[in-house]
Every structure is written in C-alpha cells, then in structure tokens.
Nucleic acid binder design. Structure first.
Lengths: 344, 344
DNA sequence: CCGGTTTACGCAACCGGTTGCGTTATCCTG
DNA sequence: CAGGATAACGCAACCGGTTGCGTAAACCGG
C-alpha cells in the first residue's frame, strides 16, 4: 500500500475544523452547522476520503462484520448449490446495510478457530447455514453473547434466531400430487433423519398419507444419505422387491437422480411406471431425463431474512426470531399430471 | 458482547511486566527473557487471551485479510460448482496461514464498493476468480497497490499474478480421443470467446485438428453462452444440418447437457452416432444419460496456489506470478473407447 | 576488578477514528 | 437589553495493540 490516504485529521485541517467535528458531520450526528457540514462533505468527496473501518472498529467496538459459517470438511454442505445462492443473498443484504461478510472456515482439526475468529475480529453476528442446534459451536457462540441465526434448522433456544422454509407442507403437496395422479404405493426416500428438514418432510408426507386414508394402498419411509450412488442402490432394492412402489418422494434431487438411475436400469418408465420427485431445485434437475419435479426453496428470501434478523438482533431491535418462508413445487416431467387413470 | 475480555495490559499486569513486553513475547520477538516469556505464555493460555485483530491492524497497518471477489450479478459465476470448491481451497490455505477471508460482493449498481471495501478494511490482497484482465476493477486495485491474483484468466501486467490450468492441452487430449475413436467430423462448441479459457480450448482443439491432418474430414467451431437451452438450440441446428458432426467437444458441461438433449430429441444415440464431451467435471456430469466425459480442473490446487502466491506477494517475497496446473480428462460413457472401427 | 557490550525490560508515542465534556458565540424571550 | 437556553465547535482521552528509544542490570573478556 504505497498510497498514504488522508486521515480524518487531514480532512479536518482542510475544512478548518477539528477531527471531532468531521466525525460528527460524517455520521450525521447533531452539533455541526449546516454550512460546515456541507463544506466537510464536499472536501470528503473531492479527496475520496473513506473512513478507516479498522480505526472505527477499535473505538466503537463494533466491526459491522457478519460471519458466515463455511465448513471445510462436510464439503457436501458447501458444494450444494443452495450454499452459494444463500451466500449471495446474504452478501446482497449485507452490502446494502453497510456490513461486510467474513468467511468463518471451520475445519475438523481446528475446532476453536471459528470462535477465536469471532472474538479476534469482533464479528457482530454469525449466520450458520446447515449447522444444527446441537452443534457445540452454537453453544460456544451464544456463550460469547454473539447473535446467531440458523438457516435450515430450528432451535428452541430463545437467544438464537432461525429462518427456515415449509419443508412439511412442501412434502405434503408433493405427496398429494402423487395421490391425485392415481398413485397408491408410496415411498418417502428421506435423507438422514437427524436433519431437521428431513424430520419436517417426513411429517408432511405422513400427514398427507394419513388424511388420504384408503386412497393409499401402502406407504413406507426409508433413509439414505444425500448421495446418488446410495440412493440408486436403495431404489434398486425397493423397485425389484415384492411390492414395488409407483411413486417415490425424495428428500433431495441427488437422491431422486439415483432413483431415476435405478428405474432406468430396471427398464421402468418414468413417470408411467413410477413417479419421482426431488427436493432443492438443483440446476441439474432440468437436465435429467425425464426432467425432475422438485421443490424450490426461497433461498434469496431466506438469506435476506436471516441477514435482516441478524442486523436487528445486533442493534437490539425487536424482531421475530422464527421465520418460516413458503416453498414452491416445480412440476416437471418425472411426475404425471393429476387425474390420470390409476394403473390397473 | 457482554464479556469484557482481558487486554494485553491486563496480561501484562498479571505477569508483572509492561504491555510492550507481552507484545514482544507473543510475537516471538527478541528482547524477552526465557522465563518471562514462559510465564507470559502460561498466563495467556490460562486466561484464554486472544490478541484483538482490530487493534493490531490499526498499529501494524496489516489486516491479515484477503478479499475474494463475489459477483452478485453474474450469478452463473458464483453458482458454478467450481466457485465454492475454490473458495474452500482458499479458505483452507488462509486458515493455515493465519489469514481471514472477506467476501468482496460486487454488484452492478455499486461499482466502487469493492475498491472501497479494500481500502476501508485494509485488505492485504485480493483473489479474483472468473474476472478478466480487462475488468476495470483490476485496474482500480492495482492502482491502490493491492496485490491481486487472478484465477482462470491470464494477464500480461507484471504486477498481477494468476493461476490457471491447461485448458489447451485438455481440449487437445479430448479431441485426440475423439479422433482415436474414429470420429472424423468434429465440432467445438465453445463458450464466449472473450473468456480466456475458451481461447485456450479453441487453440488446443485446432492444434490437434491441424496435426491430425487428413484423419479429420471436417472441423468447425461455434460459440454459445454457457447455457443449456442455448446449446440445445445450436446443437439442433448443427445435428439436423447438411453435414452433421459425429463428435462435439463442448467448453462446459452445461453446454454438453444441451447437446445431449438435442441428440435425444433427434433420436441420435450417444456415443454410437455422436460423441460428446464436456468441461469442468460438474457434479451432474455423472448423472446425465449417458454419463458425461469431461475435464476436471485441479480446483483445490488452484485455490491453494493462488493463496500462497498472494501471501508471498503481500510479504514481498519472490514468487512465480504465473502458475499453470495440469487438468485431467474424466472418461465416461458419452465418448466411445478408442480403436473402434470408423463409421463407414 | 573495570570498562564496554549485550540483554531485558519500561516508557510513551502512535495507528485513525469516536465521544464526553467544556467553552464560546448566537439566539430567543420577557 | 439582560439573562438564560441552545447550538457549534475544540480538546483530549480513549479503544488495544505495536515499536523505537532509553536505561539499568547482567555479562564478558582482559
């Protein structure tokens, strides 16, 4: 950094006032005359002066920084396409609000690194996407008094906020769509059940099955990791078993891709012999054969809501700490339209 | 932040020394007795003292922060699966080296925001993934004297470093693989030609075609955006034209997905009638039907190399500013194996 | 044992903002 | 016009580290 940028005292000297006055003028505080204020802001503009965030942090104790968790292990979290989209929404909201985003990389061999970074850098608040309420890190952060907002998980702790979407009603809608199309033997291929979103999806599925009563002949739920190969194997077992389902609701698009794969290798036609739905609206869902019916989460809204909740918590403004946003079912070719005659 | 954490003077008082001595002891500087040093580090450990990065920044002028560009518009850059993987590699390297990563969100309506953030936060160096040498931002940053490393682009400016991979030889290898399998009518479906990676891929393709001489009957190059729908349309035109190709080398997996789509709708068999290859090794490449032959870039190595180059530039250590890393061709089902009899 | 060098540390200024308090000038009201 | 209230600023201490310089003590060789 060769360029010695002007300090607030340089600006003050040019304007013939003291540094304190410049500070007050910049921050819109009272105690500065109208013409003085104007003169100062002119000089600031023409000098291209930008207040040094570091110095401001030191004196105010606030950094205007929010940390976002970035798990280095668990690459599936970060590599999942929802992650960058969330990050973008957070970044957008942060930029508008004058905050910067610090990546909180979390590796298995440095468990204290996130907490250390939060205190070292005076991070004002933390967003934890895809980290559960049982994560010990959450406890560490709340013990510090740092505001925390979870995304995609729900916590009972009153001090932590969360933003989530309607996994349950989404699963329910998809299930109903299957039933409306005449499917009678349903399977929910869920993800790991400790994931709170999966619990909700399960609840929605079973709620609809229960309500449908005799319209459904059989309903089962299995759990697989969010992994295409594992899903293929499980689907092969299901589809070549005694009572193969005619509809599989999957808890992720990667699982659904595995199911499509299994159906193909068994010579089953999708959606004629088998209806398949996914979750997440991953970009590749439009590229599969057939294209995948799935559930889109309002990621941009989720990110924005999380950021705004965090800002409110930082400023100690009252705010709802529980936000649930609506999902949207994206109907494509892997499910048949409603009111088709049921298979004989 | 309720917890008033101890300052360096508190530690000094407990150790019965001055703050300066504690500072020297922490940073391994000379001028501290062995037993004093030991006593101080014990107290630091038992108090859980962490040096305040803000204060240190202010006095040293260095922030131990590196900025990573995050274009909010141009979501295709960020949503591309290579982005999070790069980010992870950068984060990993940064964490090891004691740096933190600040996201430099760039939006169209705030063109100066990145530069402002770099000066405001005293960012030590900037990584620009997927930003070209002609980007005005690059100029702004170098004018500031900030070290910059590009990823995936090459610049002639001596002051900026870059890390890239062998797009040219990768394209060449794929093309040769096509020829070895008996293909004779080739098309390169390239991305936007202003992208430097696309220039290199084009060069590699044509180099191989030229060298193959009479083994190739025809060779063409077309340019489409990195977009599946656009690629489908273009591929339909090509494949239903007068002299349809028997091999299409694509500059991205998304383009290749479009080609697969077009082939399917024309009733062409891949790879029997048509060989298709992609680029980037996107996760969905293993899920397409047929699975996609593609090129994998060493993203983790690229990220690490970029980070380490940047650290060296920041410390004014000598370092290579041009790094090219090797790619790897991932052979799957969309290309046929070599030495098949050429089509009659 | 003595003079000079080295070592170990304290002191205080500094980094660049913010903010409470004190002072002076201006305004308003009776 | 006198008097107090108010507005507009300056001053200086602070935030929590770092670092150049000064000094006293320990050490060294001759």
């Amino acid at each position: 950094m060769k360029s010695d940028r002007p300090t607030i005292r340089d600006i003050a000297a040019m304007a013939g006032v003291s540094a304190g006055t410049v500070s007050r003028a910049m921050n819109g505080l009272p105690g500065v005359g109208a013409d003085t204020r104007r003169r100062i802001s002119e000089i600031i503009a023409e000098q291209g002066f930008r207040v040094d965030a570091t110095a401001r942090q030191l004196s105010t104790g606030r950094s205007n920084t929010l940390g976002v968790l970035f798990p280095l292990h668990a690459s599936e979290v970060v590599m999942h396409p929802i992650y960058p989209e969330l990050l973008g929404a957070l970044g957008d909201a942060a930029e508008r609000a004058g905050y910067d985003i610090l990546l909180l990389t979390m590796s298995r061999d440095q468990p204290a690194h996130v907490r250390d970074t939060v205190v070292r850098r005076r991070v004002d608040g933390v967003v934890m996407p895809a980290a559960g309420p049982r994560d010990p890190l959450l406890r560490q952060l709340t013990d510090l008094g740092a505001p925390v907002v979870l995304i995609g998980h729900r916590s009972r702790l009153p001090s932590v906020g969360w933003v989530d979407c309607t996994h349950d009603t989404a699963a329910r809608e998809v299930t109903r769509m299957m039933l409306d199309a005449g499917r009678r033997d349903l399977v929910l291929m869920n993800g790991p059940v400790h994931v709170s979103a999966c619990k909700l999806r399960s609840a929605g599925f079973w709620a609809e099955v229960t309500e449908a009563g005799p319209a459904v002949a059989s309903a089962r739920e299995v759990s697989v990791p969010f992994d295409t190969a594992a899903a293929t194997a499980e689907a092969l077992t299901l589809l070549s078993g005694d009572s193969p389902p005619d509809a599989i609701v999957c808890a992720s698009d990667t699982i659904a891709a595995g199911v499509l794969d299994a159906a193909r290798s068994l010579g089953l036609s999708v959606p004629d012999d088998l209806a398949v739905s996914g979750f997440d609206d991953s970009p590749f869902g439009a590229l599969t054969q057939p294209t995948l019916t799935t559930v889109r989460m309002p990621l941009h809204d989720i990110g924005r809501a999380a950021a705004e909740m965090l800002f409110a918590m930082i400023d100690q403004r009252p705010t709802s700490r529980r936000v649930v946003l609506p999902t949207e079912v994206v109907v494509r070719a892997s499910t048949s339209p409603a009111f088709m005659p049921p298979a004989p």
